[in-house]
Design a protein around this nucleic acid. Sequence first.
DNA 1: CAATGCAAA
DNA 2: GGTTTGCATTG
Length: 671
Amino acid sequence: MTFAAHLEASSKGTGKATDPDFQDLNPTITYRHLYAQNLGVRDPLRVIALCDSDAFYAACEMVRLNTDKDTPLVVLQWDSLIAVNYPARKYGITRLKRYNFKELKLKHPDLMVVHVATYKEGEKEPGYWDDVDTKTHKVSLDYYRRESLKIAAMFKECLPGVEIEKASIDEAFFDVSKRVREIILERYPYLAQVPLDAPNGIDTPLPPPPPIPQSEVGYIIPINPCEEPKAEGVQADEPAVEGSSSAKQEGGSVFEDENQEENMPATWHDVALSIGAELIGKARQHVHETLGYSTSAGVAVNKFLAKLTASYKKPNSQSILRNSAIPNYLRPLAFRKIRFLGGKLGSAIAEEFKASTVGDLLSITLEDMQRKFGEDSIWIYEVLRGIDRSEVKEKKSTLNKSMLASKNLPTPITNASEGYNWIRVLAAELALRLNEARETCPNLWPKTIVLHARQGYSGLRSKQAPFPFTREVTVDAIAAAGDKLWKELVGIDLAMKVTSVQLAFTGIEGAEVGQRSIEGFFKAGQSGKRQRDDDEDDRDEFGRAFVDDGIADEGNDIATTSDTILAQGNTPAVSFVCPRCGKRISCHSQTMPSADQEDQLAAFRLEHDDFHFAQDLAKESTGGLVISGPSKGTPVGAVKGHMGPSNTSPKKKKRRKERPAMGIEKFFKKS
DNA sequence: CAATGCAAA
DNA sequence: GGTTTGCATTG
């Protein structure tokens, strides 16, 4: 085939992309695109997947109790259902309704009803008790968190070279573009070189994709959704009682489309999506086989569409949304189903434009949208047209930045001692969770502790305080800090009854999981960074000599020490000088044991190290622009906003500029 | 940094 | 609906 013919084909043969509402869904893909490594969100071969666990909490309990896969099971939290597995949905059980335990058992003798694990007053660890009472117990989701971590780790292992962003306890986004690109080049080696007769060299469009049938990669959403304008399953909570979705389980290998040509890849991006789906499908299968969790996935060109696609068919299946199918898929969709449009913003938009579907909003111009909802609502405009430039950003560690233990009090408490009692329970949970996290990441500590409380009908109010670093984080220490906050927040006079108490750690930082331990860290700190090469006379900027304190191990000329200086009164200090910037960082405290000070210093050092790392990254992407001077407290986040070219996410709505006179009030009112 | 609010699962 | 989490905004 001549290239003139290719060009002809790529401009004319894809008539579907001419829909004026949906442009850019079928960009020409050239050899340059195929070879490029850093196209990021502009990659025309981008493949993103979202994978979520089916009825996750219920699945966890099934694994824990080793039930048969067909056992109907529900998870209870007090009197409400928080998870219903698919076999149980066949009974018409949904999460929304309220049930009581005995009622359920009577109606369905074979139904397993499990109450979530709870902390009991006084008990050190959560457990599955049969006498749960919201007055004395507190829910524990620890088991689910751990299982979630296992699944994430397995996905990571199965998918080398894939960016993974854990989006919640049961969901993750995958950017498989890189790996897919490699596979395309392996499978279609004739693409590895630009043909000699290519008219535009590397900017020549690729030849047409091979007409291989894509069969085992998942359900391909048709371009023309025949007699089913609304995709079933877009509603997350829809009970699977109808034959519709239960009849076609294992959708991965079943096609209802009689038109086989529909399933032929029409573009190289379609091929890429199929390869991405293969990768995800294999990983999902491995997770299913080894951990026992079934999942559903969506594969599409961006995060928002992947997320939407994942709910097309559940459970235990995956779907692919090709670009050509986007317009017809989106138009009838209730736009409130779109991520970040499900809340107040979504209802404000619905009201403003008297709209409910994506199609209803396509007639709204960008200008109108921005006039009503601020400059940044270009994000909304684009998302309605299938465009989403947000990146899949892998978190550095799987550790969360905050840890919250909370308890709602159906029977409000009226005296301080009850308050302290609950704080102890919450503190016990936090202690357990933090210390567990420290098993894999020893130098981990929360910068602050926060207490929230709701009194009467007012909203949540909060008080926070710095949380000191200690080697052992004890229940007592946390509870003491919590009690102090309680006094500031609610005082001793409980005229207003307390209906909710939450205790949280925030600003949790430390090394990465299983990466650098404290010892390893000192080694890592010097490797790769020259500077202090031959300077054996270790002196800081004040000329004080460093003393080896035994922490840094043999042959290690690291600038860390427990020198005692008397800079601040009589405060003993532990300090080090950064070999890169010469800054001295020290830790002083009258009360802290010196071992703890050293640990804290190690953490400071790590943080400082991270700062340099972040700064190096920033230099790469800003052409050497230094963002700010290094300091003890500068977190990795300093680089935020400089990382990607266009990481447009819904984040903030309106800013700086004058707020539009109209529309804003109702946006902030509750619906 | 402290406090509050929004959104999501 | 209850229990988390993360993020943005405002002071």
